[in-house]
Amino acid sequence: MSYHIRRRTQIHARLTGHAVARDARRFGPQAGMANALFRIGRNEEALSWVEKVVLHYPGFLPTHWASMAANAALGRVDEARAAYETYRRIHPAARISNIRQWMPTTTDEVSAMYFTGFRLAGMPE
Score class of each variant (00 low, 15 high):
116 T>K: 07
117 G>V: 11
77 V>W: 04
109 E>H: 07
77 V>S: 14
53 V>Q: 03
3 Y>V: 00
79 E>D: 14
45 E>M: 07
61 L>I: 12
32 G>C: 06
20 V>S: 06
30 Q>H: 05
13 A>P: 07
61 L>H: 01
123 M>N: 04
46 A>R: 03
15 L>I: 08
78 D>C: 07
22 R>W: 03
4 H>Y: 14
7 R>Y: 06
58 P>D: 14
68 M>H: 04
37 L>K: 09
88 R>K: 15
110 V>Q: 13
82 A>P: 00
44 E>F: 10
62 P>L: 02
39 R>A: 14
77 V>H: 12
11 I>S: 08
19 A>H: 03
46 A>I: 02
15 L>P: 00
124 P>Y: 13
6 R>S: 05
7 R>D: 07
1 M>Y: 15
76 R>T: 02
45 E>K: 08
73 A>F: 01
122 G>L: 10
85 E>I: 04
92 P>A: 06
121 A>N: 07
18 H>E: 11
11 I>K: 13
28 G>H: 05
10 Q>L: 13
6 R>M: 07
89 R>M: 10
98 N>A: 00
90 I>E: 09
30 Q>V: 08
3 Y>N: 03
61 L>K: 00
123 M>H: 08
62 P>E: 02
5 I>K: 11
100 R>N: 04
103 M>P: 00
119 R>E: 12
72 A>M: 03
112 A>V: 03
57 Y>K: 15
6 R>C: 02
15 L>W: 04
117 G>L: 10
123 M>F: 08
89 R>Y: 07
19 A>G: 00
91 H>L: 09
105 T>L: 12
11 I>T: 13
38 F>L: 09
87 Y>T: 14
55 L>R: 11
15 L>Q: 10
79 E>W: 00
24 A>R: 12
94 A>Q: 09
10 Q>M: 14
99 I>R: 06
10 Q>E: 15
29 P>H: 02
14 R>A: 14
17 G>Q: 07
111 S>N: 06
71 N>C: 10
3 Y>C: 00
80 A>P: 01
107 T>L: 12
27 F>A: 12
93 A>V: 04
121 A>H: 05
25 R>C: 12
28 G>I: 09
42 R>E: 15
77 V>I: 15
122 G>P: 10
65 W>T: 08
100 R>Q: 09
68 M>V: 04
59 G>F: 08
41 G>E: 05
32 G>P: 00
36 A>F: 08
108 D>R: 04
55 L>F: 02
106 T>M: 15
99 I>T: 10
32 G>D: 09
17 G>H: 05
122 G>A: 11
93 A>S: 10
35 N>T: 12
103 M>T: 08
52 K>F: 00
6 R>E: 09
111 S>T: 11
92 P>N: 05
60 F>Q: 08
104 P>Q: 15
21 A>C: 01
45 E>L: 10
42 R>S: 11
22 R>T: 03
55 L>T: 01
38 F>W: 05
44 E>A: 14
91 H>F: 09
59 G>H: 11
121 A>T: 04
73 A>S: 10
99 I>N: 04
61 L>W: 02
4 H>R: 15
83 A>L: 05
70 A>W: 07
52 K>Y: 00
56 H>M: 02
91 H>D: 09
70 A>G: 05
117 G>P: 11
58 P>R: 13
99 I>W: 12
54 V>Y: 01
